Amino acid sequence: MGKYRYILFNKPYGVLSQFTDSSGAARHTLKDYIAVPGVYPVGRLDWDSEGLMLLTDCGQMQHRLSHPQFRHPRTYWVQVERIPDAAALRQLQQGVVINNYQTQPALVRLFDIEPAIPPRSHPIRFRKNVPTAWLEMTLTEGKNRQVRKMTAKVGFPTLRLVRVAIAYLQLGDLQPGQWRYLTSEEESLLKLWQQRQQRN
């Protein structure tokens, strides 16, 4: 069996997390950026979300990182409308009820200053009299549009969403639309994580 391939990709805004688009809408897909045959995305990022994606041709790793049974942290930088107060942050940390589902506890902190990330290709809607704030949120589950639903539930709608980490893997200085293979150190960390999951 040959060596598996692992790719990190910084998905821009307005790109589907798949290689084909059957809708006929001529939307951008992963095929516009990654010309590596046989690799598939691990999990998804919504069309209007940005940031870190992992692609691989290792089916077992894909399963481990996609299946809800195997919880792993995913970290997001989230720009929200208005500035969340301590009560809202506490609610997000403890979990909120969305569609009769109680979300798992999350790590949530408010940034003191805006994180240094490239501007979005399509700017967020700007409202002169409404301030915005940035949160760092680390979740161990990935339900459909969960971060957006969580912040909306506590009264602070998401304006921009960027995933910056998956388990041990970091977005780092990878620019929107760029991809690279994992380093040998990153591969080792990922495989170590997989072995720990198998033992649990």
Results as ranks from 00 to 15, higher is better:
residue 158 T to M: 00
residue 150 M to P: 07
residue 160 R to Q: 07
residue 157 P to E: 07
residue 155 G to A: 04
residue 134 W to R: 06
residue 138 T to K: 15
residue 143 K to Q: 02
residue 158 T to C: 06
residue 133 A to F: 11
residue 141 E to T: 12
residue 162 V to Q: 07
residue 143 K to I: 09
residue 165 A to E: 05
residue 135 L to C: 08
residue 156 F to P: 01
residue 135 L to S: 07
residue 162 V to K: 05
residue 137 M to S: 08
residue 147 V to F: 04
residue 154 V to I: 10
residue 155 G to S: 04
residue 155 G to Q: 05
residue 154 V to P: 00
residue 142 G to N: 12
residue 136 E to R: 12
residue 141 E to V: 12
residue 157 P to Q: 06
residue 132 T to E: 10
residue 157 P to I: 03
residue 132 T to C: 10
residue 139 L to V: 14
residue 144 N to P: 05
residue 166 I to N: 07
residue 165 A to T: 01
residue 162 V to E: 13
residue 166 I to S: 04
residue 157 P to K: 09
residue 133 A to E: 12
residue 163 R to W: 11
residue 137 M to C: 11
residue 138 T to G: 12
residue 166 I to W: 07
residue 161 L to P: 01
residue 162 V to R: 06
residue 139 L to M: 09
residue 163 R to I: 10
residue 141 E to D: 08
residue 156 F to N: 06
residue 165 A to D: 14
residue 165 A to L: 02
residue 147 V to L: 12
residue 152 A to R: 10
residue 159 L to R: 00
residue 161 L to W: 01
residue 162 V to P: 11
residue 146 Q to W: 01
residue 138 T to D: 14
residue 152 A to C: 06
residue 150 M to K: 07
residue 165 A to G: 04
residue 134 W to Y: 08
residue 161 L to S: 05
residue 132 T to F: 02
residue 134 W to D: 14
residue 138 T to W: 15
residue 133 A to N: 14
residue 155 G to P: 01
residue 138 T to H: 15
residue 158 T to Y: 01
residue 164 V to C: 04
residue 144 N to C: 00
residue 151 T to W: 11
residue 163 R to N: 15
residue 158 T to H: 05
residue 147 V to S: 01
residue 153 K to C: 08
residue 164 V to W: 03
residue 132 T to P: 11
residue 135 L to P: 00
residue 133 A to Y: 13
residue 162 V to Y: 04
residue 151 T to M: 14
residue 145 R to K: 13
residue 143 K to E: 03
residue 161 L to K: 02
residue 163 R to L: 07
residue 149 K to P: 03
residue 159 L to D: 00
residue 137 M to T: 09
residue 151 T to D: 09
residue 150 M to H: 09
residue 163 R to V: 10
residue 160 R to S: 09
residue 159 L to Y: 00
residue 154 V to E: 03
residue 148 R to V: 13
residue 151 T to V: 15
residue 139 L to Y: 07
residue 166 I to E: 10
residue 145 R to L: 05
residue 143 K to R: 11
residue 134 W to C: 03
residue 136 E to N: 15
residue 166 I to P: 03
residue 144 N to I: 00
residue 164 V to A: 05
residue 149 K to Q: 02
residue 135 L to Q: 03
residue 144 N to Y: 04
residue 165 A to H: 00
residue 132 T to V: 10
residue 160 R to T: 07
residue 152 A to Q: 09
residue 135 L to K: 00
residue 140 T to S: 11
residue 138 T to V: 08
residue 145 R to C: 06
residue 149 K to Y: 02
residue 136 E to G: 14
residue 164 V to L: 08
residue 139 L to I: 13
residue 148 R to K: 15
residue 153 K to L: 13
residue 155 G to D: 03
residue 140 T to N: 14
residue 141 E to R: 06
residue 138 T to I: 15
residue 141 E to S: 08
residue 165 A to W: 04
